[in-house]
Amino acid sequence: MKMELIFIPSPATGHLMATVEMVERLLDEDNRLSITVIIISFNSKTASTIASLTAASNTSLRYEVISGEENPTELTATDSHVQILKPLVKDAVAKLLEWTRPDSPRLAGFVVDMYCTCMIDVADEFGVPSYLFYTSNAGFLVLLLHMQFMYDSAEENNKYDMY
């Protein structure tokens, strides 16, 4: 039986392409996986990218496009606009997992972009775990960790200073 993962990348093109690359690597490693990438589309700027991706769908990798409100800014597309699309995402996943189909995969979890954390609620409704996917490179994440370490060290040193 195939295990189904649902990936939900941020609407930004860079996040979408990083997610697709990660998905392809996962599928190369395990043929028991089946992955659906739910693409949230807010404008026509990404239409050609989405069209080329959906044309490449196969039995192990599918793309589901959900359209949101036209022309939000990239900043607003990552918060309240994504929140509004939760019912559409839920319906798309439910349709994918129709229990009456004999080849219906077993839902294993949701992998959500760092800007789509509101979709964790949808995973909770299906009773599956959710995982966060950071599209940042390792160098950036190390920098953030180092900055936190420096901050914590400064706080530790300052607590012994009386004046």
Rank of each mutant, 00 (worst) to 15 (best):
S104D: 04
A12H: 13
S41I: 00
V112K: 04
E69A: 13
V82D: 01
V142L: 14
S34P: 02
I8Q: 00
V23R: 04
A18P: 03
T46R: 08
L16M: 15
M119S: 03
G139D: 12
F149P: 01
A56V: 05
A92V: 10
I39L: 14
T36S: 12
G139T: 09
E125S: 13
Y134I: 14
R32H: 09
A47K: 11
V20G: 03
F42L: 05
L144G: 13
S44H: 05
K86H: 02
L53I: 06
F140N: 10
G109E: 05
T19L: 08
L141H: 03
L144D: 08
L16P: 06
G139K: 05
T100V: 12
E69G: 03
T46K: 09
E70A: 13
L53W: 04
V128C: 03
R106H: 09
E69D: 10
E69Y: 05
Y131Q: 06
I6W: 08
R25V: 13
D79H: 10
V128K: 00
L75I: 12
L26A: 07
D152N: 13
K159A: 14
Y115F: 15
E21G: 07
Y134T: 14
S57I: 12
W99L: 14
A138E: 15
K45E: 09
E4V: 03
E74V: 14
L53N: 01
L61R: 11
V111K: 00
V111G: 02
T117W: 01
T36C: 09
A51S: 15
L96N: 08
A154P: 00
T76K: 03
K90Y: 12
P9W: 06
A92T: 09
V111Q: 00
Y115Q: 11
Y131P: 00
T117V: 15
P102R: 05
V89C: 05
C116P: 01
D113T: 05
F126D: 02
L53H: 00
P105W: 02
A138N: 09
L96H: 07
L5R: 05
K95Q: 15
G109D: 05
W99H: 11
V128D: 02
T19Y: 06
T54M: 05
G68I: 06
D30A: 11
N31C: 07
I120V: 15
A51W: 02
T13G: 04
S67I: 11
Y131D: 03
V89T: 00
I120H: 02
N157I: 13
I120F: 05
S60C: 13
L143N: 07
P87A: 08
A51R: 09
R25E: 15
D161A: 07
L141Y: 03
L61G: 03
Y131M: 11
R32E: 15
Y151F: 13
T100S: 15
L75S: 06
N71M: 13
D124A: 12
I40S: 02
E64K: 09
M22P: 00
I66A: 05
E64F: 01
T117C: 12
